[in-house]
Simulated assay, not measured.
Amino acid sequence: MRYQGKITTWKDDQGFGFITPNGGGKDVFIHIKSFTQNKKRPIGNELVTYEVLTGVNGRLSAQQVRYVGEINNRPVTIGKSVYPIYFTIIFLALMCLAVYLNTLPLFILAIYAITSLVTFILYWTDKRAAKKNLQRTPEKTLQLLSLLGGWPGGLFAQRVFRHKSVKQSFQFTYWTTVLMNIAILFVIASPAARRLLSKLLGV
């Protein structure tokens, strides 16, 4: 049996909230995974329909949740699409090939590897902090690391931990830093820039 209610409480960082049923009654727990399709995340006050599952502790949980009046088969957002993953894998493969062909310095690839690892770890700790209401990692720190070359690690962390992957404002800034980083890499890796760098370093 399906019910209808309104999401009256929503904690986006933790991915859960509560539905107040139409006509009153006990609030129903709702988790982001309870939605039937990969759609926009709620922000509160959305009308939804749902089924109810009663847990062993007596808590009511919403299942098969849908927004009222939603249209099925909406386009998949960037935060859910597989194409950014393919793009990142191809990008890293091209970097490795460039290093192998001696057209890109190894230390640049090392910078990407190190910053990506640091970024991945910070996403993980920030996700844990969000769940436990602890001090968070500032978003500007994550974005700065992406700009410095940690964006591949950031992307994989977003998908593995399901963190920051659908927040539109964060995603816009994130992909802006990705484009800026790639542009800077092309400038640095150009022959003219490498000759200048060699002169400055006396190599």
Rank of each mutant, 00 (worst) to 15 (best):
M1S: 02
Q4T: 01
G5V: 03
K6D: 00
I7D: 01
T9P: 10
T9E: 14
W10R: 05
D12E: 07
D12A: 10
D13H: 14
G15F: 13
F16H: 09
I19C: 01
G24I: 00
D27G: 10
V28E: 00
V28I: 14
F29C: 04
F29T: 05
I30T: 10
I30Y: 00
I30W: 04
I32C: 05
K33A: 12
T36R: 15
Q37L: 13
K40H: 13
K40V: 15
R41P: 08
P42V: 07
I43M: 09
G44Q: 10
E46P: 06
L47T: 08
V48P: 06
T54Q: 06
G55I: 04
V56Y: 15
V56S: 15
N57H: 07
G58M: 07
G58F: 02
R59P: 13
L60R: 06
V65N: 00
V65A: 02
Y67K: 03
Y67T: 11
Y67N: 01
V68H: 04
N73T: 06
N73D: 09
N73W: 08
R74T: 10
P75W: 10
I78E: 04
I78K: 09
I78P: 07
V82H: 12
Y83K: 11
I90E: 09
I90H: 09
A93I: 07
A93D: 07
L94E: 04
L94Q: 04
M95Y: 07
C96E: 12
L101I: 13
L101W: 12
T103P: 12
P105M: 06
P105I: 08
F107H: 14
L109Q: 11
A110E: 15
A113Q: 09
A113W: 08
T115W: 11
T119Y: 02
F120T: 11
F120Y: 14
I121V: 12
I121H: 04
I121N: 09
L122I: 05
L122R: 03
L122H: 08
Y123G: 00
K127L: 05
R128I: 15
A130P: 01
K131S: 14
K131A: 13
N133G: 05
L134K: 07
L134D: 12
T137F: 00
T137L: 01
T141Q: 00
T141L: 00
T141K: 00
L142D: 01
Q143P: 06
L145C: 03
L147P: 00
L148W: 10
G150Q: 02
W151S: 02
P152N: 02
G154P: 02
G154C: 02
Q158W: 08
R159K: 15
F161E: 05
R162L: 13
Q168V: 05
S169D: 03
Q171W: 10
F172D: 08
F172E: 02
Y174I: 02
T177C: 10
V178R: 11
V178H: 01
V178L: 06
L179I: 06
L179Y: 04
L179W: 13
M180L: 14
N181M: 06
A183F: 12
L185A: 15
I188M: 13
I188Q: 09
A189H: 07
A189C: 12
A189I: 11
P191D: 02
A193L: 07
R194W: 03
R195G: 13
L196D: 11
L196T: 14
K199V: 13
K199D: 15
L200D: 14
L200F: 12
L201C: 11
L201D: 15
V203P: 14
V203Y: 14
V203I: 12
